[in-house]
């Protein structure tokens, strides 16, 4: 299965196909008939396995926001080429993302520095609380995105790492 959505921390693989009278959702363990009829202002009617649900859907970039059964959810589409390329080159741990919006209190490394797993890379502040960001694995700092005092949103790329071997 090429396609994937991230929902929370979990990645779900899936495929979509068209049938004679709608679509099919292909999951690891089952295939379900599905269809979506869109109305105004994001409102839509989802038919899943014969049941009808009113949903509200909005998209921005790769993010899909769905209001379903009284709750809002966010899913992030992972394009197969991007996801598989990342899998081939290393893990997501190469990229240190902001766990929440905030600002940089201090940065203790610079590009080119070799770091070991657990080493403190920077300190950020959010909601008047300081959070330290540590190296997810051994590696070499490829780039540091923000300087002291700069602010960022959640999931902003704070630092990127490359493998020590690759750098040599």
């Amino acid at each position: 299965m090429h396609h994937a959505f991230k929902l929370g921390d979990a990645e779900h693989n899936l495929e979509l196909s068209r049938s004679a009278d709608g679509y099919r959702l292909h999951l690891a363990d089952r295939t379900l008939p599905i269809d979506l009829k869109t109305g105004a202002d994001g409102r839509a009617w989802l038919t899943l396995d014969g049941e009808h649900h009113e949903v509200v859907i909005a998209t921005r970039g790769d993010d899909v926001f769905v209001h379903f059964d009284g709750e809002a959810y966010q899913l992030r589409y992972e394009h197969p080429l991007k996801r598989l390329a990342a899998a081939g080159l290393g893990s997501a741990e190469d990229r240190v993302l902001a766990p929440m919006p905030g600002s940089i209190v201090s940065v203790s490394v610079k590009a080119g520095d070799a770091v070991t797993k657990g080493q403190i890379l920077l300190v950020m502040e959010s909601m008047k609380m300081e959070t330290t960001i540590a190296a997810p694995r051994d590696g070499v700092i490829e780039a540091v995105t923000y300087d002291k005092g700069q602010t960022f949103d959640r999931d902003a790329l704070l630092l990127s790492l490359v493998a020590i071997e690759k750098k040599k």
Binding site: H3, L7, H12, R18, L27, I34, L36, L48, Y77
Partner: peptide
């Protein structure tokens, strides 16, 4: 059921997924 509905709604709202599905000729679909 919630997970399936979310994935389905998201898949049908994501162009790279929907475009591939829609590109399949009627008979083959």
């Amino acid at each position: 059921q919630t997970l399936h509905a979310l994935l389905g709604a998201a898949a049908l709202s994501t162009r790279p997924m929907r475009d591939v599905a829609d590109a399949v000729p009627d008979m083959h679909a």
